[in-house]
Simulated scan of single mutants.
Amino acid sequence: MDPQPTTPADLRPCAHCGRDVPQRAGAGRPFRYCRDNDGACQRASRNSRMRHRNAPGLPGQVARTWEVVDRLDQVVETLTEALHAELSPAGVQRQLAQARADAAAEVAAAHTARDEAREAAETAAADTARARQETRAALASADAAHHRAEQADARAAAAQEQADQALTAADTARRDSAAAQALRVQAERDRDAARHELRTLRAERDTARQLAADLTVDRDAARVDAARHAADAQRAVADATAARQETRQAHADAAAARADATAAADQARQAEAAAQ
């Protein structure tokens, strides 16, 4: 099939350079710029408007108006593409397929829910029978539990009695502990007193030992002094004996001298008498 020739209605001049721009068939936003130069015309037109948008007077207003037009064109293009995607035959077919798939899923879910309801009913019947059996077992368990509760009460009473006895024993133990504590304190005091007395006795023993040592030294010195004094006494006794002997000799010599003097006096008197 030969391609259809392009009609003037399928062409539109570029808003920047004026060249003819081929348009797509059907509904949609028309192409305002050349499409074969990677958007160069569109960028050049935008740059030109940006240069003139702050210009005073009509050029600035025109530039700002074209900027608004570009924004509206972008919005229109977005809406056109969305509507084309949703309202085109392919879009409608896709929506129908989605609706059929959703309906099939809902039908399958309904069948599944029905089967689950049947299974739930059967399970409920089985659960009811099992619940009846469990109720009978629970009643039997309740009777057994009541019996166990009575036994537990008896054990609790015995445990309470044991607890009371334990409390009494604990009180006694506390009193014994207090007495033991008092005895321990008294024992510690006695121990401290004994230690103090022991230290005192040790000090007295050391003092006595030192005194004994000093007395021993004094005794030895006294012995030496006594020996020296004894020797001195012996020498004094010897000296006294010699002195007594010398005194006796002196007395004897004196007596002899007196006798000689008497004899001499007698001779002198005799000589004097003879001389007369």
Rank of each mutant, 00 (worst) to 15 (best):
S141G: 12
L58W: 04
V237W: 03
T112E: 14
N37V: 08
E116F: 01
A250R: 13
R64N: 03
A275N: 11
R35E: 10
T135F: 14
R12E: 02
D36N: 09
A159F: 11
S88C: 07
A125V: 11
P13C: 02
A194P: 00
A238C: 03
R43W: 02
R223Q: 12
A173K: 14
A110Q: 05
A140S: 15
A159T: 11
A104N: 09
Q151L: 15
P22H: 04
P13D: 02
A144E: 13
A264F: 03
R53G: 01
D239Y: 02
V217M: 07
R189G: 05
A149K: 14
A125N: 13
R228S: 15
P13T: 02
A208D: 13
M50I: 05
A242F: 08
M50Q: 11
A169G: 09
A149N: 08
A170P: 00
R248H: 14
R184H: 13
G26A: 07
A238Y: 03
Q98H: 11
R269P: 00
A250C: 04
T200Q: 14
Q23E: 06
E188Q: 10
R269F: 05
A231K: 09
T123G: 08
A97S: 06
A55L: 14
R155P: 00
A99T: 10
V107S: 08
R29P: 00
A254C: 06
R195L: 15
A137E: 14
P5V: 15
S48E: 11
L198Q: 14
R24T: 13
R114P: 00
A144L: 12
Q95P: 00
A230T: 15
L83G: 02
V237F: 04
R248W: 08
A125I: 09
H52Q: 14
D20M: 11
L198A: 15
A257W: 05
R24K: 11
A261Y: 04
A236S: 08
R209M: 07
T65H: 03
D164N: 05
S177Y: 14
A97W: 00
